[in-house]
Amino acid sequence: MVSLSVSDRATDTATKPAGAPRLPFRLSPGARAALPLLGLLAVGFLAPLLAILAFSFAPPRSFAVLRAFSLANYAELFSLSNTVWLSFLWSIGFALATVVLLALIAYPIAFGLTFVFGRWSGLVSVLFVFPLFVSENVRLYGWVLFFIKNGVLDGSLKALGFSGGPQVLYTSGMILAGMVYTYLPFMLFPMTLGLAMVPRDLIDAARDLGAGRWQIWREVEVPLAMPGILIGTLLTFVLAIGAVAEAKILGGQSVIVISHDIEIAFTYSQNWPLGSALAVLVTLFIGTLTLLALQRLDLDRLLGRR
């Protein structure tokens, strides 16, 4: 249907004689070119959000969207007896820890990719991208197979006569490790981009002016790579706060994160309005954080326009 309307428009403009009735407004070529994307965003992004928003005001445990207005879902979420805030804290905690660990792990790799590895950089990058070709769930189940009792690690060690591998599965540490592993590329590549934008000359100049390695890092490298670092941080934080697979698969549901709560509301408890209200709150929280961060972020400089 979409293709039909597009071809209609094409023939319209081609065959329409001058003086034919015109639209009351004119779109610039850029706006016209953006229309398909706009349509996609409206259907695929805005519409579900609006549906969720509408659902969050429906009476609890009903599907009466837009037929009745109720704040009961929000009231329940904020009631003192509700422990959903615990899930929320877990999610924020995991996300913060993930971001911090990723920053510490990714920086040296990004530095290597930019300044040290030289012609090997391409290969190293591919190695880091490669896991993305396999579905996240499959990779996480791979971890489970590796660490599970009598699994690859435990079983092999036992077969070799040892007492068996460490039982790390279904712990919060394992969840964190899984998240760090999953989101590494999303921190690494923006960070590499940020570091690649630090001119070599400036580092040479800083050295020449008497700066030591640590001073160069603090005074030149980090401030100039900051756009990339911030984007990586933002990206991984947003992804990590919505993460659910790591807690479910590696954590074995020992910890319930916020996205898991939302999923439970929609599936197991069939309480769409409550799940929607929770989703709205989480979206507002992440959205506010993102906007605040983006305000401080100079995208023009990141793209080299200034």
């Binding site: 001119p199 000359d201 400036l202 040479d204 020449d208 002016l209 700066a211 030591g212 100039l224």
Partner: peptide, 20 residues
């Protein structure tokens, strides 16, 4: 002897001023 230890200083072709 590394550049930061030498009593010498360079004005670069790009000037290498710190933009931030």
């Amino acid at each position: 002897m590394p550049p930061e230890k030498r009593p010498t200083c360079m004005v670069f072709q790009s000037l290498a001023l710190f933009p931030h």
